[in-house]
Amino acid sequence: MKWHKSAVLIALLCLGLFCTYSALDGRAAAAAEEKVTVLNPLGTPPPITLKQMAPRLDTLEGKTIYLVDDGFIGGDNLLYEIQDWFKANHPGTTTVFKRKGGGGFDAEDPELWAEMKEKADGIIIALGH
């Protein structure tokens, strides 16, 4: 008889545990399904202004190309290599090496801009490193 009582007690305990677990599980599932509203973390991006690219040349023959070093380390090395390449492969193209002025590698150089507007057919600017 004692044995039967214990078995019933254990069965009831298991049932209780199962019911508690089911209830908790149900609540957790409901919480997981609950909808939350959050704010957008982004700032406001500006509109993008499209600029048409410069018209292309029909040929490089007889044209003057300015090679502009902005002062960033090593840019001149690259431009001198480019200058060599033009001399070897496009002898009819004149290249002019210039180092940009101004107080920093990203500063304007109005004098050089004006000179190139007048004399250059094309420009290669190197951002070296």
Binding site: E33, V36, V38, L42, P45
Partner: peptide, 11 residues
Amino acid sequence: QSRGPDTFTDT
């Protein structure tokens, strides 16, 4: 360019 909606709602 748009930053999108002011809020998002979901789980």
